[in-house]
Design a protein around this nucleic acid. Structure first.
Length: 586
DNA sequence: CACAAGACTTGGTATCACCGAT
DNA sequence: ATCGGTGATACCAAGTCTTGTG
């Protein structure tokens, strides 16, 4: 039964007294051809955020120096703010303005008339209270913690799974997001706005007609229950900050996500077959007499060469000002006909997704450079670089070049092919396992750099590096001590020539060897960590690298798959682990 | 065709749980 | 038993691309 829920369907046949067992992996089951995603879907609905618990009376809010008891709705909003007090963004004008505006909406008319200036508000007592609370939570006894854990587990068992077609599947996010203050990323114009509480009346449930429908909490009802098998989500609601829809969907380990993932890499592999043709064509298009075609061709070149994102248009003032390829503006690039010993250098400097800075200087071909000069003519810094292009034009063109081709396929393709090449280049068959893993991480890192996956250096980075260094120093001392001992033992053997001294030499030799290995491992670890300081490997590993490349590499070099993928990742990539052999080629 | 809505993937960070060292 | 560091996970925001509508 366990195997069944994990892998897929198990069939038994009995032929002439022999029991035959067939396991059909989920990813080998038949897929629907009519666009439907499932036949049967049953689940228990979402788990709602716990209701607001008013503050104890002794914890006071002060306005203009005087204590003031707030109505529950207004008080709840202040708790969100006071929990954030230590963050820099509560000092930002936009955050404070948005917060204050939304907070006032929750106030009674009396409160509204009294509280007119955020600067006269004192939340420090509340802030202290929450700090004490979280301290207390950390200090809880083992039993209490165990109890909470069990309750979480119970909730997970009850609400965390659904039945889709013949399988029990893990749900990705079965808890509804609690209310709070919105904090976008980067310079977000809506930071500080109130993210309202989601009620059952906001939720649309999706399940099959013949399933047991989820029950809303007592005394409430769902907004709607529908039976749409053309989509994969189980529940949805509209969020109030951007007015966008949020969904409850399945975990990456599910059949439906796994198949999609597989399909994505198959599309990228199809691109591999025709990428030469496409490259030849866009280079040709740099000479086109039509401006729109030249722009399209230069943009595609950037997407291909630099793994830039497509760059959809965004509504101004609704989100942080970030761009991708098609939405690049004049101010985001600089042209240098000559720079140091290179010609035709383009300097990119812009904020991409999540307001992560993209900074890069690259030499380009003369034709590209001349085209860029042309695109820049008579434009202001805030004008679009590619004024005759957007993502839908570009993708329409790509669709004509290859079925299923869109801008992001280039990112997937270039990421995966880079990993494969780098692994080929960096792996020495004679290396130890840790050294091979270092090579793997370096290959992974090359991809992360290509895709510009950055992270803030961990807060504990310097310290942990230091710790590691002391460990290395200690190991080195150990090693020289062990070597001395070995030398002494050898001398002793020469002098006495008895069995016992011979054995001692062997023992000491082994010890030296062991310490050498340990030292090497530590040094490798230090190198790896240093190189990884500002680079995030997770995103590319999870979203861009065909897992079959990694699985094949592991099989080829006898690396246990656990060294590359942790438990969650192994679950997500179960299809690839099952499928790929050591000679798999992307 | 433009535009908005909808669905789904990709993204960084805060927090949690665990584990080895003290 | 406690502490602190670390990897795993939860969280939820922000992209891409498709679909629907007038």
């Amino acid at each position: 039964k366990q195997i069944c829920s994990l892998l897929g369907s198990v069939f038994f046949f009995s032929v002439m007294g022999c029991v035959l067992l067939f396991v059909v992996f989920r990813w080998e089951e038949e897929r629907y051809t009519d666009g439907s995603k499932w036949r049967f879907l049953e689940h228990k609905g979402p788990v709602f955020a716990p209701p607001y618990e008013p503050l104890p009376d002794k914890v006071k809010f002060y306005y203009d120096g005087k204590p003031m008891k707030l109505s529950a709705p207004a008080e709840e909003v202040t708790t969100f703010f006071s929990k954030m007090l230590d963050h820099e963004y509560t000092t930002k004008d936009i955050f404070r303005k948005n917060f204050f505006k939304d907070w006032r909406k929750e106030m009674t008319s009396e409160e509204k008339s009294k509280i007119t200036d955020l600067n006269k508000c004192n939340f420090s007592e509340m802030s202290e209270y929450f700090k004490t609370q979280s301290e207390a939570r950390k200090q809880m006894s083992k039993e209490e913690k165990q109890k909470i854990k069990e309750e979480n587990e119970r909730l997970l068992q009850e609400y965390g799974f659904c039945i889709m077609d013949n399988h029990k599947e893990r749900i990705g996010n079965f808890r509804i997001e609690p209310p709070g203050l919105f904090r976008g990323r980067g310079d977000h114009p809506k930071m500080g706005m109130l993210k309202r509480r989601i009620r059952p009346e906001d939720i649309i449930i999706n399940c099959s007609k013949d399933s047991k429908q989820p029950k809303p909490p007592p005394g409430t009802k769902w907004k709607e229950v529908r039976h749409d098998n053309k989509v994969t989500w189980l529940a949805s609601w509209t969020e109030n900050i951007q007015g966008s829809i949020k969904y409850i969907m399945l975990n990456p380990s599910s059949r439906i996500k796994g198949e999609k993932d597989w399909q994505k890499y198959e599309t990228a592999r199809r691109l591999k077959k025709c990428v030469d043709r496409i490259r030849t064509q866009y280079r040709d298009d740099w000479k086109s007499k039509e401006m729109r075609i030249r722009q399209r061709a230069v943009a595609l070149y950037f997407i291909d060469k630099l793994a830039l994102r497509a760059g959809n248009e965004k509504e101004e003032g609704e989100t942080a000002d970030t761009v991708g390829c098609c939405s690049l503006r004049v101010e985001h690039i600089k042209l240098y006909p000559k720079m140091d010993d290179q010609e035709y250098v383009v300097e990119f400097d812009f904020l991409g997704k999540d307001s992560i800075r993209y900074y890069n200087k690259i030499p380009v071909e003369k034709r590209v450079f001349k085209n860029l000069q042309l695109f820049l003519e008579n434009k202001q810094p805030e004008d679009d670089l590619f004024d005759r292009l957007n993502t839908s034009i570009l993708n329409k063109h790509l669709q004509e070049l290859m079925d299923g081709l869109t801008a992001k396929v280039f990112r997937t393709y270039n990421a995966s092919i880079t990993l494969q090449q780098q692994l080929k280049e960096l792996t020495c068959p004679d290396d130890s396992v840790p050294a091979k893993i270092l090579s793997y991480n370096r290959a992974n890192r090359a991809v992360a750099i290509l895709c510009n996956h950055q992270r803030a250096p961990p807060k504990t980075f310097e310290k942990s590096m230091q710790n590691l260094q002391t460990k290395i120093d200690e190991k080195q001392n150990q090693l020289s001590a062990a070597r001395k001992q070995l030398k002494a033992a050898k001398a002793d053997r020469k002098a006495s020539r008895d069995e016992k001294s011979k054995k001692t030499v062997e023992v000491k030799r082994k010890a030296v060897q062991r310490i050498e290995e340990q030292l090497m491992k530590l040094q490798v670890q230090a190198t790896d960590r240093e190189e990884n300081k500002q680079i995030a490997l997770g995103t590319s590993k999870l979203n861009y690298l065909d897992p079959r490349i990694s699985v094949a590499w592991c099989k080829k070099f006898g690396i246990p798959i656990e060294k590359i993928y942790n438990k969650t990742q192994r679950e997500k990539f179960a299809w690839a682990i099952d499928m790929a052999e050591k000679d798999y080629e992307f």
